[in-house]
């Protein structure tokens, strides 16, 4: 955790006047700062807002958008909505997980580089099956081979600065 983030945390709570009805918004902003919701940060949020830590934990685990474990630098989302599913989302997901050697239940690589998630619909069914990277790049009409090529590009991008150094 970098310095100054803690001050941001209290700023976020203050901005929402510590209102319990703003808990989801507060958690969203906190996650934007930390990239995930560390346990001690949630305990702090509960303390500052005067609610039970179990309640904050309950809200944080209810929504798929919140993560209590650190996520990778690249978040790869494989759409598994109906259209993507019937056009072959599962083999894409499988290929990615195999290439990254992700065991069952684990979404993020141990080096914190990649997180692979499925989503229920990205609203781009015409491009099915769809894969997004960090919600920025959208890759449509994907195949297992195609997604591995996208992954290889990301991996190469990561290795470049190291080679330069």
């Amino acid at each position: 955790m970098q310095p100054r983030k803690f001050e941001k945390l209290q700023e976020i709570i203050n901005k929402h006047e510590g209102k319990v009805s703003h808990l989801i918004a507060i958690l969203q902003e906190v996650q934007a700062e930390y990239r995930y919701l560390p346990e001690e940060v949630l305990t702090y949020v509960a303390t500052a807002m005067g609610v039970s830590p179990a309640t904050v934990y309950g809200v944080a685990t209810f929504y798929a958008q919140f993560s209590l474990v650190p996520k990778g630098k690249y978040i790869i989302r494989v759409c598994d909505g109906t259209a993507c599913h019937v056009r072959g989302a599962a083999p894409i997901n499988f290929a990615l997980r195999k290439e990254l050697a992700l065991p069952d239940q684990q979404q993020t690589t141990d080096d914190l580089q990649f997180t692979v998630e499925t989503v229920s619909c990205l609203g781009a069914c015409g491009l099915a099956p769809v894969v997004t990277i960090n919600d920025q790049e959208v890759h449509g009409q994907m195949t297992p081979e195609g997604v591995l090529a996208v992954l290889a590009k990301l991996q190469a991008r990561e290795q470049q600065p190291a080679e330069q150094a």
């Binding site: 609610v51 039970s52 179990a54 934990y57 209810f62 929504y63």
Partner: peptide, 8 residues
């Protein structure tokens, strides 16, 4: 508030 619902 020791207990609460978690997950979904």
């Amino acid at each position: 508030g020791i207990w609460d619902f978690a997950h979904r």
